[in-house]
Simulated assay, not measured.
Amino acid sequence: MDILENFKAIEVESPVDKIIKQIRNSIVSGQMKPGEKLPSERKLSESFGIGRTYVRDAIKKLEFYGILKTLPQSGTIVSGADISAMEGLISNVIKLNENDFFHLVETRVVMETYACGQAAVRRSNRDIADLEEKLDEYKQRVDANLPGVKEDFNFHIQITEASQNKVIKSLMLILIPDILEIYRKLNVCGEGRFYKSFDEHKVILDCIIKQDAKGAEEAMRVHLKDVVNFSLSYKGNE
């Protein structure tokens, strides 16, 4: 047996990953609280002893995960999202192996199908208004011929909000960003996909408005069918 088979490649953290870890640890430990403003990029760059480009990239990733939020003329603040649920995740951002893609999608389908059905049963008028707002934001991106990844993500998270299941919402906040990152790497969202996705979102929302739980669950399965099929074909090519 070749002794080298027992050795694994050493993963070297990028500067961005190290910045993310430090900011995350400050938030999880309570040193930085929701609503608190981050120092400027320049001050962070000086404190970390690293270029501002790395700081900017780290902030963008943390914004994507909903941990930070940049407000016009106010700077970047710590979001009030479920930050504690993120502990243990962000230090490994972008490091999920594509081989995990099928299992991530499989888990997403189980959770989102259930959440969609519960949203149809439990939704309030406020939930409907919020979902309609998220769908309209998505439509604006699609009509402008722009990728709507973030807006898509926000619509799905709003469904979990309407389901009134905080555990599912927290788990989805962990799962979806990693799935979307692999979507981008594997170019899952091909040309025209965002238009098709928007139409499917409308069907889902219509079922939730009508409180049709079974219809909502089926509409979500149909919506996720393409990515499930893609993940199965990718799994078969490993």
Rank of each mutant, 00 (worst) to 15 (best):
K43Q: 09
L44K: 08
I50D: 06
R52Y: 07
R52L: 05
Y54E: 10
V55S: 06
R56F: 07
D57Q: 08
A58D: 01
A58T: 06
L62R: 06
L62P: 02
L62N: 03
E63P: 00
F64H: 05
G66F: 10
I67H: 09
K69M: 10
T70C: 13
T70S: 15
L71H: 12
L71Y: 10
P72N: 10
P72M: 00
S79H: 10
S79D: 06
G80A: 15
I83R: 00
I83Q: 04
I83K: 06
I83P: 02
E87L: 01
G88L: 11
G88W: 08
G88Q: 12
I90H: 02
N92M: 09
N92P: 04
V93F: 08
L96I: 05
D100M: 12
F101W: 07
V105C: 11
T107W: 02
R108T: 03
T113A: 02
Y114W: 13
A115T: 12
A115M: 14
G117Y: 05
R122S: 07
R123F: 00
R123G: 03
D127W: 02
A129K: 07
A129D: 13
L131F: 00
L131T: 05
E133Q: 13
Y138S: 00
K139N: 00
K139T: 13
K139Q: 05
Q140M: 06
Q140C: 04
V142W: 01
V142H: 03
D143W: 08
A144G: 11
P147D: 15
G148N: 11
E151R: 01
F153K: 15
N154D: 15
Q158C: 01
I159V: 07
E161T: 09
A162L: 02
A162D: 14
